[in-house]
């Protein structure tokens, strides 16, 4: 009896959480343009999506930026995490806190701040500025994913490698990196997810010539919600869910990841 109550309660919560997305997904397959009525199943909206040049172009930018931002932020973030890990005392705590600020900072503040910075530096808003912005907000997530793996390492493991004749760089490549690989991979996946679904920061840093999918959805929605938006949103949602599943599986092998 108690078990049943627990299940019903859980069910209600999940229904509440996912109802909007379920409605969105269902209506992306709806034959009519009306948002209140079900008029039969269709894949037309998805087909239309890929005919729309604006959307395919945005898809190209989204994916390109996500991949580049992931690669760069993963490399930079991993090196930073190793550096922070081997620091001591006050500087280490300071850096850890500084690292957390961008994560907690409202996106709109980060976005406006970056835009101001780029403009005052005389940079033209576009692909490069958006890429830099994405790299910047992804790095803290990589650091946060890699640090716990470093903490799990035996303190003396790098020393043990050097003791056996490994140069510092050999010890890093053959011992430290393989040991923290799960953290690096989940950091990279998180960076990719953050980059793909970012709207606010991209909106302020992309300028007029470049847009990613979120910006396109936003500008389309302003002109009235078309079912193609439902279809596009559904695809984006699926992409993020798949990434999250992979991250959880990866981090499940090690320790739980804070999301």
């Amino acid at each position: 009896m108690k078990k049943l109550a627990v299940r019903i309660y859980m069910g209600l919560i999940f229904l509440f959480l996912y109802a909007p997305i379920i409605v969105l997904i269902v209506f992306s397959f709806n034959k009519t343009k009306s948002r209140g009525q079900w008029a039969g199943f269709t894949l037309d909206w998805y087909a239309q999506l890929f005919k729309d040049r604006l959307i395919t172009e945005a898809l190209y930018y989204t994916v390109t930026i996500a991949i580049l931002a992931t690669v760069i932020s993963t490399i930079v973030g991993t090196i930073a995490a190793i550096g922070i890990h081997y620091m001591r005392g006050f500087g280490k705590n300071l850096l850890l806190n500084i690292n957390n600020i961008p994560v907690l900072n409202p996106d709109i503040v980060t976005g406006v701040a970056l835009m101001t910075l780029f403009i005052s530096a005389g940079m033209r808003l576009g692909f490069m500025t958006m890429l830099i912005a994405h790299v910047l907000f992804c790095i803290p997530y990589v650091i946060l994913a890699v640090l716990p793996k470093l903490r799990q390492l035996n303190r003396h493991i790098a020393e043990a490698a050097m003791d056996l004749g490994a140069t510092p760089s050999y010890a890093l490549r053959k011992i430290i990196l393989p040991e923290i690989r799960p953290g690096i991979i989940s950091g990279a996946l998180m960076a990719f997810t953050m980059s793909i679904d970012d709207f606010v920061i991209s909106f302020f840093t992309a300028g007029n010539e470049v847009s990613n999918l979120s910006i396109v959805v936003y500008s389309m929605a302003r002109r009235g919600v078309k079912p193609t938006i439902n279809a596009l949103s559904t695809l984006m949602f699926l992409a993020v869910v798949i990434l999250l599943l992979i991250i959880n599986k990866k981090s499940g092998e090690g320790e739980e990841l804070l999301l």
Binding site: N154, H156, I157, E159, A160
Partner: peptide
């Protein structure tokens, strides 16, 4: 090493 520091 203390606590061995083997390569896991």
């Amino acid at each position: 090493f203390q606590r061995y520091a083997l390569f896991p």
